[in-house]
Write a protein that binds this DNA or RNA. Structure first.
Lengths: 341, 341
DNA sequence: CTGAAAGCGCTTACAG
DNA sequence: CTGAAAGCGCTTACAG
């Protein structure tokens, strides 16, 4: 049915081995043979069967990406789109295909990865998001299978990973609010089992301590990466007798929820409540008021993850196991309100 | 290195053929053998080598998705994230993996698809977005390779496709504005080579004609699916001596651009200019004012595309070649301003 | 119900 | 510089 290496060999009057060597750019082949074989390949419309090639070469020219369990809701947040955009761009440039997989439970995730790894379907894997103790990481380490983590792992500190310095990022965000004269600053966090939540919390705490500002436990609220979480956090804060005048918010989408709630209650951002978010999604500058946000270079995170993984797959040397993508505070109206004591 | 079917066979004291039959759930195997073999498989941690299986079975349990050329900018628009979310959810549920590929030029796209198809890397392909004459479609048809199109094709009208009724959707949007008393309604379109642009334009024109309303050519502007396009269109409209009082806008993201521009100029939505967009992205209800939008069921589009493709791959009967996902107008403040003549 | 054998399409030492 | 042969890990008629 399709054209095989044997068809080409016959027609070119050479052996299949020779055709194979021409394809792989093997050294010791006469120019004449190369020309001849290539001609026939074109003429016949030959294309290598990837499966056969993989079977013997034990390489697939494909990398896999495991989407977090909540893939269903996942894409509501621009974070993952941006990551994937970076990954697919880079992997395509490097001649690798990208395989996506997911699972709805931890067991399903491990199964999906097992299938990819043991089924020899991919050469390496990109993991998005790290939870505290992740059986997927244990499995990949045990298998000695190449992988990179977007984020970082506490249980497996030496794992190859691409991350932001989230502690510093949150520190910067908090410092910025302090510089505007705020003293009562709250923090809206994400799911507590995510390392990114705790890193950003740490940065916030550090900045507050350093400035000798009081942190009230009720100024710290945990939630999901969803608008609703912001909305709920806001209602909670606004009912406090001593409410904060500014918030550091774990994700812009959550910040939108805060903003919406604040506006509905008739308060104003930034005069009644100043905000700084994270991720700098395109809508941040569109909302009214525009929201200040830490740009964490999401696309770059994905691009670098793919690049690093492919290096690892090829066995090229990797100098740093932990690559940090720089962040940048984008100051906008939501945090430009100076408090005069 | 890894455990093969032969290792299992040896240890279980049967032939490789039998192991293979147990794996594939073949009928005529004694329960005792099945139990024994499964036990050994677990014990040894056996996992089938997908490549070897594909090579002989000629099936990959994988579908491919071709991202539009502009993948770089692509994900800035929620449309693709949502589509992919639908596709990955459904394909995973059906036990298929998802392979993503892209190209930066038409030639590269054809190459990427050729690699997937001729390399027997996938069982079927999902195409996003259709341009007027698409060499990828010609190729797939010629190869008799299963594929579905998200969108529709004029050059290949019988191709399996999942689409909205974009003509009707735009008609509904326009009717809604007419019902508010608007007579001077403009249309901000997308790239003219996309069928979706022309379909929506047609719906707009139909509704206007039917209501015996005049359409001025300067009320129709083409652009990209980007904020900037909306911004530019707005500046253009607002400088017209006889400017429209309402706009149908091809995409919410473009509508945001319009909104931002209008606001900057000191005008108000909806009183100075009413807006209806398409796609109903999450931000539509967050902006101020919230933007009316046609929800086209993007997730559903992706989910159904995957479902239909997998049916086609399996050779199951498909009753309709053109599947239409219903749309729904979400009325919000941006279009709730009644004009009294 | 089960096994031996051929074959899927390729690569790669081993010879020459 | 090139060919014959073995083998990657699986499936599937063909026998029995």
């Amino acid at each position: 049915m399709s054209v095989t290496i044997i068809d080409v060999a016959k027609k070119a009057g050479v052996s299949p081995s020779t055709v194979s060597r021409v394809i792989s750019g093997h050294s010791r082949i006469s120019p004449a043979t190369i020309r001849k074989v290539k001609e026939i390949m074109d003429e016949l419309g030959y294309h290598p069967n990837v499966m056969a090639k993989s079977l013997v070469s034990k390489t697939t020219q494909t990398i896999g990406i495991l989407l977090p369990r909540s893939a269903e809701e996942l894409f509501l947040n621009l974070f993952f789109s941006e990551i994937i955009r970076g990954v697919v761009t880079q992997s395509t440039r490097s001649g690798y295909d990208l395989m996506m997989t997911t699972g709805t439970s931890e067991r399903e995730e491990v199964e999906a990865i097992t299938r990819l790894v043991k089924g020899r379907r991919v050469d390496g894997i990109i993991l998005l998001y790290s939870r505290k103790s992740d059986p997927v990481i244990s499995f990949l380490q045990e298998m000695k299978f190449p992988f990179v983590l977007v984020g970082r792992s506490e249980d497996f500190p030496h794992v190859l990973s691409i991350d932001n310095n989230n502690v510093l990022a949150a520190y910067d965000a908090t410092r910025h609010l302090i510089a505007q004269g705020h003293k009562r600053i709250g923090f809206v966090s994400g799911p507590p089992n995510l390392i990114v939540s705790r890193d950003r919390m740490d940065g916030y705490v550090q900045a507050m301590r350093e400035a000798k500002l009081e942190i009230q436990t009720e100024w710290i609220v945990e939630g999901e990466f969803l608008q609703e979480s912001g909305y709920r956090a806001m209602s909670f804060f606004m009912n406090l007798p001593h409410r904060p005048t500014a918030l550091v918010v774990i994700d812009d989408i959550v910040a939108f929820g805060v903003l919406r709630g604040v506006t509905e209650l008739g308060y104003k951002v930034p005069s009644d409540l100043s905000l700084v978010g994270f991720n700098n999604i395109p809508m941040s500058e569109l909302s009214s008021p525009p929201i200040s946000s830490i740009d964490i270079g999401i696309y770059q995170l994905g691009y670098t993850a793919s690049q690093t993984l492919i290096k690892a797959v090829k066995g090229e040397p990797i100098h740093h196991n932990h690559i940090i993508i720089p962040h940048r505070l984008m100051t906008r109206e939501s945090s430009l309100h100076t408090i005069h004591p």
